[in-house]
Amino acid sequence: MLNLAEWLATTQWSIALHESLYWYPWIESSHVLFICFFFGTLLFVDLRLTGKVFTNLSISEMNKGILPLTVVGFCLMSLTGLLLFYAIPVRNYQNIFFRIKILLIIIAGVNALFFHKRMSKEAKKWDKDSFIPNSMKVSAIASLFIWSLVIISGRMIAYNWFDCDRQPQPEWINFLTSCVVDYQLYEGIDGT
């Protein structure tokens, strides 16, 4: 994986993005806007499931009306996110917050998968009875909670507190970030 990241870093476009004065901030800003698009619309879909908003609309109507926006937001957010990763691949790959974020996205993805599997099967029934099982409400709230953590950890990637080029770090940090540290280099500095 590290080799892959190192190879990506040597590609022409990665270097161009990394060094560009304007492309990087523009992509970063649009990433933020698409986060609003994605999370903001998801918020209302999930709030509808808990019965907090848009109670005039059935679950199916709400999903049909709003989820396309959420999907578009997700795609654009992912695209800009991939570009941001591609601009600084090695540093991101070894960044602890990036790793936490990816883990959280996987968890959110699994949650969403179960959520939508069940919803596509039973939404019609919930529309008719205007009743939503508690497990679905929990799943909706959990989705908002996990995506909030994704946003927070994503914002933290910008900070280099635990980066590989800032040593010494505790051993467990270097383990989690798979940093390759030449300890002999630091022995001299520490005087140990």
Partner: peptide
């Protein structure tokens, strides 16, 4: 980070 979360909530309301 929480500022960003607030932005996402406001942004969603604006978008919809």
């Amino acid at each position: 980070s929480f500022h960003l979360l607030g932005l996402a909530v406001l942004g969603g309301s604006v978008v919809i």
